[in-house]
Structure formats: C-alpha cells, structure tokens
Design a protein around this nucleic acid. Structure first.
Length: 375
DNA sequence: AAGGCGGGGGT
DNA sequence: ACCCCAGCCTT
C-alpha cells in the first residue's frame, strides 16, 4: 500500500517521464548493473583503500571541481606531510597553502584548516559520524557530506555531483537545465529511484566512476554501454545535448602590472587580503598596464625615498581562469638604495624564498621560473 | 537565484 | 574558443 502510494507520487511528479519510471520500478537492478560495472572497471585510487574519515574527507575536498588526475599528487603530498587530522590542525595556514599551491580554489585549503582545528578541539580529533554534524563543517556542502557519510560511515545518502547529474539526466532523458532548482529537483528525484540503500558507498562510487570514465561529457561510449537499451537520452538521440545548462559564466578581461624590485638579493612582496588568490603572496601590483617609461612615476608613488633603478626584464604573460582573463606584465627592477615603501603591507624577503616559502598564484610562479631560468 | 572562486585537460 | 571537472560560500 505504502509502496503504491510512493509509486504514484513518483509517477505524478515525473508525469513527463512516466514511461521511464515504470521501467525502472520494474527493473530493480539498475544499481546492480552500475555496481557490477564498477567492480570490473574501477580505477585503483588511494582513497578507496581506506576507511579513515580524515583521508576520505581530504580526498573529497581536493576533488571538488578538480579532476582525479590533477588532485592525485596533492592527496599524496598532504597525507605524507599531515598523516593525521591533528597534524593538519596544528600546521600553520601558510604551509598548508604552500602545499595547496597550484590546485586553485584556495578557500578549500583555508576552510579545511579551520575544520581540522574544530574537529580536534570540539570532537577530540574524531570525525563526526552523522550527516547533520558533517554538513555543518566549513567547506562541506551537500555533495561532500553525502560522500563522507556513505564512504566512511556506510550511511545511505546519495551523492549528486557533476558525474551523477550527467548519468541520471541522460538515463531519464531530463532536459530541464541542471543549473536550475527545477532541474536539480528532477535529477534528485530520479536519483532516489535508482539509489541503493543497501550499498550506498559502493553505489555512489560506482555512479561517479561511470560518469567520469564511461558516460563522459564528450564522446560517451554509448556503443558499449550497460544502459544502451534503456537510456532515454540515447533513445531520443540527445546524448550529446543532455545535460543542458543555462551557463553563461562571463569572463572578465583585466590587466596587471607587477613590480619585482630587487635590492641586494632581496625583494618586496605583499599578501592578498581578499578576492581571487586570497591570502596568497605577490609582488606589488598595479591593476593596469604600465609602460617602461612610466616606471619612474610609479616608483615615486610606491616609495617614500628616491632611488636610481634599472629595468632588467619585462616579462609578459596571459593567464586564463574560468572567470578571468589576465594580461600581466612583470618588471624586474634593480634599485641602488634601500627602498622604503609608503604602503606598510609590503615587506622584504630574500628573493630565493619567494618560490619556496610563500604561496603564490601560477601566474607569479611562471614569472619566477622565467627569471631564475635566465640567471 | 546568481555570481565569485583556479587551474588543467579535452575537443 | 569553449566546456567541464568527485562544489562551496556569500549576497
């Protein structure tokens, strides 16, 4: 009786997809097909061979909006430097950012550090084991909470990431844009129909792996697919256009000029305090293009004293991000007297420490590689 | 609901 | 060029 009520509720909600719903209600082995496929085709990954919630959490934070291939070396680095959550909690943020350097979305590292300290202080180093406490932690949203809950503690929460959006929307032929609340709701309901309450962790791993390596965004392997006969997107020949997104991330074009002043093997840097690359370090920045003949004027603005200078190098580079396109110029400038900056957030370090002790953006790292290569 | 937040790889 | 990736947070 209850089962019937649930069934009709689903059919009513999915009136548009009712044929598929009936099909999936009858065929209860969709999750089994996925799990069987997974056990035959899964990649060997280090975080799959542990039940340590710390390692699982660490891997999930690293993998947010990040491909396995890119995150893998970072996972190895972090588990090597910080084998337990206590090690991570007692580290300082600068060292953590240094280890995170190059991975992007640096708020992940800052939030991870904050959460580690909370788990040590409030939970005595034991990762909380229920969903509501897990999702309350900084940097953990619906996806990551479900992943940790199912992988580490065997709790029945389905994960919904980019892979799952794609697999489910194609399987059910959902054409509503998935970056709308309506589209998200439809995918969530459909996911609940095929989710395995008995093997939540295995099912979650399986459907994500299937999306990552088989039901891929471009050129999915439909001809050898376990769902070839029941995939609605395949049936109506819309695999390439599903899932649909409204999209429209606009790219801002901006120009940066960095002044790398060098005085007796030392240089001068500042820490960013907000926005992109927050808490990372950089050479003094002017947020527009400065020509070589304007350098004198800007040095006067930056410095309280005057100095003879010589422009050693002009390094130009373009840096592409998902929401920025930065045209940057780096000037390498030798000065012959000790600079005194009028801005007090600029401080002096040995130039060689810029690439070893201070976390910086890839943009700055590319410049550093360039000048050290020249010398 | 929309926009900010990195960097790399694929097509 | 554009799209996407084991998303989250703020407004």
């Amino acid at each position: 009786m209850c089962k019937n009520l649930g069934y009709y509720a689903k059919v009513i909600f999915f009136h548009k997809y009712w044929i598929n719903i009936c099909f999936f209600e009858e065929d209860l082995n969709t999750s089994n097909l996925l799990i069987n496929w997974y056990q035959l085709n899964k990649r060997e990954l280090p975080w799959r061979n542990t039940s340590d919630p710390y390692k699982i959490w660490l891997s999930e934070i690293i993998l947010q909006q990040t491909r396995v291939q890119q995150g893998l070396p970072y996972f190895e680095r972090f588990t090597h430097h910080y084998p337990t959550i206590n090690d991570l909690a007692s580290a300082n943020e600068q060292d953590i950012l240094l280890l995170w350097q190059g991975l992007g979305y640096y708020s992940r590292a800052r939030n991870m550090h904050q959460t580690a300290k909370i788990i040590v202080d409030k939970y005595h180093g034991n990762f909380p084991s229920n969903y509501s406490e897990i999702i309350a932690l900084k940097g953990i949203g619906e996806y990551t909470a479900a992943a940790i809950a199912s992988f580490a503690f065997g709790l029945a929460y389905p994960v919904l990431d980019g892979n799952v959006y794609r697999v489910i929307s194609r399987l059910f032929g959902i054409e509503k844009p998935i970056d709308t609340s309506q589209g998200k709701k439809e995918v969530t309901e459909a996911l609940n129909l095929v989710f395995s309450q008995d093997n939540p962790g295995l099912f979650n791993q399986a459907i994500m792996e299937f999306g990552a390596t088989h039901c891929t965004p471009k050129k999915p392997k439909c001809s050898t697919c376990i769902f070839n006969s029941k995939c609605e997107a395949n049936r109506i020949n819309k695999v390439e256009s599903i899932p649909l997104k409204k999209g429209k991330t606009k790219v801002l074009k901006i120009k940066h000029t960095y002044l790398c002043l060098i005085f007796k093997k030392n240089t001068f840097i500042q820490q960013r305090t907000e926005g992109i690359w927050k808490n990372l370090y950089q050479f003094p920045l002017i947020e527009k293009y400065i020509g070589p003949n304007e350098i004198a004027k800007f040095l006067d603005n930056f410095l309280e004293n005057t100095s003879n200078f010589k422009i050693l190098d002009k390094y130009e580079s373009k840096h592409i991000l998902s929401h920025r396109k930065i045209d940057a110029i780096f000037y390498t400038i030798y000065v012959d007297t000790q600079p005194v900056f009028s801005k007090n957030n600029i401080f002096e370090i040995p130039l060689t420490e810029m690439s070893t002790k201070y976390p910086t953006s890839i943009l700055t790292q590319n410049y550093l590689k360039n000048i050290t290569h020249d010398q």
